[in-house]
Amino acid sequence: MDYQIARHNMVENQVRANKVTDPLVIAAMEEVPRELFLPESKKGVAYVDEDISIGNGRYAIEPMVIARMMQIAEIETTDVALVIGAGFGYSSALLSRVAETVVAIESDATMVEKAEKILQDNNYDNVIVVEGDVVAGYPKQSPYNVIMFDGAVAEVPEAILAQLAEGGRLLAVVREAHKVGVARLYEREHGVIGHRDLFDANVPYLPGFEPVESFVF
C-alpha cells in the first residue's frame, strides 16, 4: 500500500473538503503518517474516514475532526499545547508540527511507552508524553495556550479549564448522555471562560470522561 498517496487523498477528500484551509494544518496532515500511530493490524485502514480502535477502549479519532479543531484553535508557532489522552501520539504529532511545544498526558502506561517510542524514533522532539490522571490534566506545566482532547467528553472538568492561559483556546467534542456530540471551543478572555459550539462530531468517549448515568425511580 502506498501510504503517501493514501494520506494525500485523505487530505484532499476528508480535510480540505470539510473547510480546512489553514496551510499549517494542511501541511501537518500531509506530513504526519497516521499509520505509524496504529496497531500493526490497523495500518491498512489508516486513512479511512472514521475513528480507529487502538485497544483498551481507546481510538485514534478521525483526522477530519482533529484538523477542524486545530484550525479553529488558531495555533501559533510560539504556543504551548496540552493533549488530553495521548493514545499512541497521532494528535500530539500533528500539533507538534504547528505549536512550539506539546505536552501529552496519558493514563495508560503501555500507551505512554508506545507513544514515546514512536515519537522519539520519528523525531517529534518537541512532544513530551507524561503518564498521569487524564481527568486532572497536567497543571505542572500550565498555563497552556491550547488544550485539545483526543476523544469525546461528557463535560470538560473545571480543573482542566483552569489550566488555560489568558487568550487560551480549549477544543473538545462534548457528548452529553444520549445526545449528539458537538465540537466546542472554550476561550479565556480577561480571566473569564466562555464557549461556543462549532460542528457535530460523534467521536468515541475518552476513557475517564464518559457520562455518569443517573437512575430515575
Rank of each mutant, 00 (worst) to 15 (best):
I75S: 07
I75Y: 06
I75E: 06
E76Y: 10
T77M: 12
T78R: 12
T78H: 13
D79L: 09
D79N: 11
D79Q: 07
V80D: 13
A81F: 08
L82C: 04
V83H: 07
I84A: 02
G85M: 00
G87K: 01
G87A: 04
F88M: 12
G89K: 02
Y90L: 05
S91K: 14
S91E: 14
S91G: 15
S92K: 04
S92G: 06
L94C: 00
L95F: 14
L95E: 13
L95G: 13
L95D: 11
S96C: 01
R97T: 03
V98H: 06
V98I: 15
A99I: 10
A99H: 05
A99V: 10
T101D: 11
T101F: 11
A104G: 00
I105Q: 07
I105Y: 06
E106A: 03
S107N: 15
S107G: 14
S107I: 13
A109S: 12
A109H: 09
A109M: 09
T110E: 11
T110F: 07
M111I: 08
M111Q: 08
E113G: 08
K114H: 15
K114M: 15
K114G: 13
K114T: 15
A115P: 06
A115C: 05
K117Q: 14
I118T: 01
D121Q: 12
N123W: 08
V129K: 01
V129R: 01
V130A: 02
E131T: 05
G132S: 06
G132K: 07
D133R: 09
V134Y: 05
A136H: 14
A136Q: 15
P139S: 13
P143M: 13
P143S: 13
Y144T: 09
Y144P: 08
N145I: 14
I147H: 01
F149V: 01
D150H: 01
D150P: 03
G151H: 01
A152G: 10
A152T: 11
V153Q: 06
V153Y: 08
A154S: 15
E155D: 11
V156L: 05
P157N: 03
